[in-house]
């Protein structure tokens, strides 16, 4: 099954809707709640990042019998140093984002924590793609 979501970059209020929708689909498919929670948290963090850093983008999700694969692509500013961005506590988020409860420098580390495979490709000035995989065992 393939699903595509568009993420609006201007509406922080709506951030998380795509993750919520995917979570609902996974529940309907009868996938275990622990696995759903892992993919939902990782995707939600990535979706929030798209809104606060990159003015939105597109999310493609593919569900097969053995895994859930989610690819999030934006045309935002890109990440100059991915290794640094992966460090817990490192953040470039604005004060406004921090006041909303995000920007603690836990987004990318959380995505890694909850997925079996995570790939980040980014080019400064062009955008970022985050690919998340959780295996269904």
């Amino acid at each position: 099954m393939k699903l595509r979501f568009e993420v609006d970059g201007d509406e922080f209020v709506l951030a998380g809707e795509a993750s919520s929708k995917l979570k609902k689909v996974l529940m309907q498919l009868g996938i275990s709640s622990q696995l759903i929670r892992k993919i939902a948290i990782a995707m939600y963090e990535a979706e929030i990042n798209m809104v606060i850093h990159a003015n939105g983008g597109f999310i493609d999700a593919e569900i097969t019998p053995d895994k859930v694969f989610v690819s999030l692509s934006d045309t935002g500013p890109g990440i100059p140093d991915i290794e640094l961005a992966m460090k817990e506590g490192y953040s470039t988020a604005s004060d406004k984002v921090r006041e909303l409860g995000f920007g603690a420098g836990m987004g990318l580390p959380n995505m890694k924590r909850y997925t079996d495979d995570m790939k980040v490709t980014s080019e400064v000035g062009k955008g970022t793609t985050v690919e998340l995989t959780v295996f269904i065992s």
């Binding site: 998380g16 993750s19 919520s20 939902a40 909303l100 409860g101």
Partner: peptide, 17 residues
């Protein structure tokens, strides 16, 4: 338990079950 009241608190809770 939180002092934040924006919609993302509900979303966060939702993802965490």
């Amino acid at each position: 338990l939180t002092g934040l009241v924006n919609p993302q608190v509900i979303r966060t809770a939702e993802m965490m079950d």
